[in-house]
């Protein structure tokens, strides 16, 4: 029987150790892929992924059942990656500071990826995305590669929803340049 993410958390909290193994296995590849897009270094990614899932284990007893598991996992991965990369000075502090986005930004059409895909080969697209400033890249990857909704990205990155939409739209505009 396949359990949902929330059921696995509950089972672990009730003493089923194998539930954590199942949850880790389920999200391992996606968390690795997401982390690698930032670190772009295999050794760093392995360290970050290990730290991420250790933090998942440490936090699981306090997991807020009103939240969804997927954005919670990405939040831990995101914060772990940022902390690690800052310590190793693999990213600059300024790349983490986003522009100030208006909270009341109009809900414009966020654009599509098809225009970017039509214009770029996959490898070039990868390079372009990976070279984006961090605050654009993290939204773009979570939305377009990891298939999170804007609401889930907002939870994962602890940023307001309109900010996420703005970042996504501007990231697409940057890719199309």
């Amino acid at each position: 029987m396949e359990y949902t993410d929330e059921q696995l958390i509950e089972r672990y909290q009730n003493g089923d150790q194998s539930a954590l193994v199942t949850l880790t296995t389920r999200y391992f590849d996606t968390i690795y892929r997401y982390t690698y897009r930032f670190a772009r270094d295999r050794a760093a990614t392995e360290d970050i992924v290990q730290d991420t899932f250790i933090k998942v284990w440490k936090s699981i007893a306090r997991f807020d059942k009103s939240m969804k598991v997927k954005p919670w996992l990405y939040r831990i991965a995101h914060n772990t990656a940022i902390d690690y990369l800052r310590k190793k000075k693999m990213i600059s502090f300024s790349s983490m500071e986003g522009e100030q986005f208006e909270e009341t930004i109009a809900d414009e059409a966020v654009g599509t990826m098809e225009q970017a895909i039509a214009a770029e080969e996959r490898a070039v697209l990868t390079q372009k995305i990976e070279s984006l400033p961090t605050h654009y890249k993290e939204v773009l990857l979570l939305r377009a590669e990891e298939s999170l909704t804007f609401e889930e990205i907002s939870i994962a990155l602890s940023k307001p929803l309109n900010t996420i939409k703005s970042l996504y739209r501007r990231a697409l505009l940057l890719l199309q340049k």
């Binding site: 880790t24 992924v49 990826m113 590669e145």
Partner: peptide
């Protein structure tokens, strides 16, 4: 939703899951 695009594949190193 389905992923909108696929970037160059990132393969997870074998044995890493077990190590973690």
């Amino acid at each position: 939703q389905k992923p909108l695009f696929s970037l160059t594949e990132v393969s997870t190193p074998s044995g890493l899951l077990e190590r973690v």
